[in-house]
Design a protein around this nucleic acid. Sequence first.
DNA 1: AACCAGGACGTGA
DNA 2: TCACGTCATGGT
Length: 231
Amino acid sequence: MFDKYKAQGWWPIITEVVSTEKETSTKDQSKWICKYGLAAPRNQEEAFEIAIGAILTQNTSWKNVEKALINLKSSGNLSIEKISSMPLKNLENLIKPSGFYKQKALRLKEFSKFVLSFGSMRNFIEKIDRETLLKQKGIGHETADSILLYACKQKQFVADAYTKRIFSRIGLIKKDTKYEEVKKSFEENIPKNLEIYNEYHALIVEHAKQFCNKKPACEQCPLSKLCKKMI
DNA sequence: AACCAGGACGTGA
DNA sequence: TCACGTCATGGT
């Protein structure tokens, strides 16, 4: 997969692009895009954004999550303090494009307050463990592992639905294998290395999007030869 | 116009 | 434990 897709450079981060065109310089023409390959998180703000993105992307396409994140960021509300203190209705409106916006607004607020209970994002990153994180409402296995791996740099393999779909089709696991078991088998069979955990999951997502989606494109798939195609 | 998207939770069996 | 309904917007 790496040969095919190259390094993914997760996690993606929302960044402001300032236009340098002179003709329209009367207005401050800036736009926001989602950028990969930044070696994020480079600071606590990005770590927090990653956690927020992990919650927003629950059963939702990343494209819709981008819209929600840009709404938050461009309005200056993508911070622990703002999300935990702003009116619920405002938050709901900002994240509406990501879907399930009422429950997600609550989850974002609860999570932000949870981080605040550690004192700061830095302390949260230092102290948080998987069991404690899983007790938070709205944070299940995958979201927890995404936050721990990509925001906190802990060696936790993210075994999402894509992972199960690809590797059950290939024939390496059964399709009814539970999350914790899939996670364990990966952690036992690939090098215990942060970069590899990071990149491996990102490649799985890319592969699932390009070829191994619900209706797979097996003809063009780079893994076609080694796959048992157990659709 | 159905169907799907980087899930999680509450419920009843 | 486990299958099933619910939550919701935007793209194909």
